[in-house]
C-alpha cells in the first residue's frame, strides 16, 4: 500500500543542515494499522507528511497504492490525495467559517459529486462518528473530542484507502482519546482502511497492529 525506499529529508539554511529523516525504508501493507512513536523532533510528523504527499522528501522514492509519486504540486497529485488519502491532525484544522457538515463535505467539493450526494455522504460520515446532531454547529461550538470526531468524519467521507493521523489524541483527554482510537480501529477493521498514526502515547500505540520507533530521523525499531 505504502512503500518508502531510502527516504531522507534534509532542511538546509545558509549556515546549518539538519537531517530530519535518514534513509527510511518502510512498507505499510493494505489494511494495516501502524503507529509511529518517538521523542519530539525525531521526524515522526515529517515522515507522515511525506507519506501523505504533503511534503517532498530530499531523496528516495515513494509508492502509494502502487503509484510512484514524482510531482508534488501537480493537479494529478492533488486528485490522488483527494481520492486515496484522508488526514487527521492533532489540532483538528477545521475551517472556522464553515459549519460541521460543510467542513466534512470539504474533500467532496473537489470531486464531481452533486450537492445532494455530498450532503448524504457527509451525513453518513458524521453518523459514523456519532455527531449526526451537530451538523449545523460551527467548530467553536464544539468540544475538543467533538472537533476531532468531525475531523475524522472529514477524513473518511471520501472513502480513502489510507488515513494518516498526526497525533489525533494529542489534544484530548484520555476518555476522548480512547473514543477516537476506537473509531479508527473500527474503521480499520470494518473497512480495511490502512491507517498510519503518529503518537506520543504508548497506550494508544499498543492498540494498533504494528509500532515503529524513530530516533533522530532513523528507524530504530
Amino acid at each position: 500500500m505504502i512503500k518508502l525506499n531510502n527516504i531522507t529529508k534534509v532542511y538546509r539554511t545558509k549556515t546549518i543542515e539538519t537531517t530530519a529523516l535518514n534513509e527510511i525504508d518502510l512498507h505499510v501493507p493494505k489494511g494495516e494499522f501502524l503507529s509511529i512513536m518517538g521523542p519530539s523532533g525525531c521526524g515522526k510528523s515529517t515522515l507522515l507528511n511525506i507519506m501523505g504527499l504533503l511534503d517532498e522528501p530530499s531523496g528516495g522514492t515513494i509508492q502509494v497504492d502502487g503509484q510512484t509519486i514524482s510531482k508534488y504540486t501537480s493537479k494529478a497529485t492533488a486528485q490522488f490525495r483527494n481520492k486515496k488519502l484522508g488526514f487527521i491532525f492533532q489540532s483538528f484544522h477545521l475551517i472556522p467559517d464553515l459549519n460541521v457538515i460543510d467542513n466534512v463535505e470539504l474533500p467532496l467539493l473537489y470531486r464531481k459529486i452533486s450537492k445532494k450526494d455530498r450532503r448524504e455522504m457527509a451525513s453518513k460520515a458524521l453518523e459514523s462518528v456519532g455527531l449526526a446532531n451537530r451538523k449545523q454547529h460551527f467548530p467553536n461550538q464544539l468540544s475538543g473530542g467533538q472537533k476531532q470526531r468531525v475531523a475524522i468524519a472529514r477524513a473518511i467521507v471520501g472513502n480513502p484507502t489510507i488515513i494518516l493521523a498526526d497525533e489525533p489524541t494529542g489534544n484530548l483527554d484520555s476518555v476522548m482519546g480512547d473514543e477516537v482510537i476506537e473509531i479508527l480501529t473500527k474503521l480499520n477493521k470494518e473497512n480495511n482502511t490502512t491507517i498510519v498514526m503518529v503518537t506520543h502515547d504508548e497506550r494508544m500505540a499498543m492498540k494498533t497492529d504494528r509500532l515503529i520507533r524513530l530516533y533522530d530521523g532513523s528507524q530504530i525499531a
Partner: peptide, 10 residues
C-alpha cells in the same frame, strides 16, 4: 493548507 491536503489544486 487543509484544502490542498484534501485535494484542492492551485
Amino acid at each position: 493548507g487543509v484544502r490542498k491536503a484534501f485535494g484542492a489544486h492551485q
